[in-house]
Computed example of a mutant assay.
Amino acid sequence: MGKVSGVFLLVGLCLGAIVAMLVVPRGGSNTPAVAEAASGAAAMSVEPEASEVPISVAAPPSASPPPKKEADPGEPGAIDPKGIAALNPGGQVSVVVYDRTVKKNTVSLQPDRSYTSASLVKILIALQALQDGAPPGTVQRMLSASDDNIASALWSTHGGAAIVTRWAAKIGLTGTRPPEDPGRWGDTRIIAADIAKIYRYVLDQAGATTRTTIMRALSGATESGADGIRQYFGIPDAVGDLPWSIKQGWSCCRGARILHTSGVVGKNDRYIVVVLTSQPTSTTYASGGKRVTDVVKALVPALGEP
């Protein structure tokens, strides 16, 4: 019995050792497994505590670059000023685009450069004539067909050069001056920033009858002016299906050919667009008009609807 007991004791000790080896973890036994998993996870480092159970680390999906942000058509950064200037070689160009929704200029290029107004001054003549009680139909005809004879008659009747001085003070026009020769209303001096202000006044501050009369005339502008010059250059030829209302200006040739396009574009008259140009006298009205149209086409990305 003593020998048998000794044998049982020896067997018991062996079994105990085996159980201890199975139950007690070896120090660092998890580390190789984690390191191996990390090597397959794009060099991802995982350092678990010794008491953690072995884990597997799945490789993350390959990172793809964030989608490129599309340019906002309404951002002024979408417009290249140097590119616009290059569209009128040998001449000068000024541009203002005012967004009435966000209430700020979204494009501004040489807004304070001075030009002769040509027929753009007719908007001021219209404001004064309507205030003085002139027939709306007469004012509309002057604007829609850019009729110089009507403009001359209203200019003389309603104050001449004082019209410019009066409305410049009323609206806050900083670069608008009456002509040196009081009889030559088309030689009124203007800047693009002021023309944009005139449209803002008509749309937002003028009385309802005045606003309706002027805007109805501008939205109904005839393709040819009363003098036979085609006046759909610039805004009408450039903006496609967007609604527009315009007042154009042209004159020649006292040192330069003048071609201006101005008006409102878009739903609810959202954008005020003003493009003033002086061009070499060697250009024709047709070729000069195309230059102005090309400038407005370059501005179309700034006229995006939300």
Rank of each mutant, 00 (worst) to 15 (best):
G240F: 06
E52L: 03
P178G: 05
L15F: 02
A86S: 10
G28K: 10
W185R: 00
G186W: 02
S117F: 04
Y271K: 06
A162M: 12
Q140C: 02
V300N: 08
K197Q: 11
Q131T: 05
G234K: 06
P81K: 07
A161G: 08
V11G: 00
A161F: 10
P48I: 09
G263R: 08
P61W: 06
R113N: 11
G2D: 14
H158W: 09
A86K: 04
G90D: 10
G172W: 07
K82W: 09
I214A: 13
V96H: 04
A50T: 06
S94W: 06
D194F: 11
A286I: 14
G27F: 14
K170E: 15
S62T: 11
Q205G: 09
V102D: 10
Y199H: 15
M215G: 14
K104C: 09
P236S: 05
I229W: 11
K290Q: 11
F8T: 00
S245A: 15
G83K: 13
K290C: 02
E52G: 01
L154Y: 14
E47K: 06
A126H: 04
Y271V: 07
A37W: 09
I171F: 09
Q248S: 01
S119N: 03
P54T: 13
R270D: 08
H158P: 01
Q231S: 08
G234E: 07
R26N: 01
A206Q: 07
G186C: 13
T106W: 08
Y115V: 14
E49R: 13
S219I: 04
S152Y: 12
D269R: 14
S108E: 14
K197A: 12
S56D: 09
D80N: 09
T213E: 06
S282K: 13
G186T: 15
Q231N: 03
E305H: 06
G288N: 03
P76L: 07
S287E: 07
A33S: 05
S156K: 07
M1I: 02
P179N: 04
P81E: 09
V107P: 00
R216I: 04
L22D: 10
L9A: 03
V11Y: 00
G234H: 04
T213W: 02
A217M: 07
I79Q: 08
R230V: 14
A256F: 09
A151E: 08
C253L: 01
A71I: 12
P179T: 01
A42M: 07
S94A: 11
G90A: 13
C253G: 06
I191A: 11
S29M: 03
E52Y: 10
L130W: 03
R291M: 13
T283S: 11
I55L: 15
W185S: 05
R257V: 13
A206I: 01
L299I: 11
K103H: 12
G6I: 00
T176D: 02
T106E: 06
A38C: 15
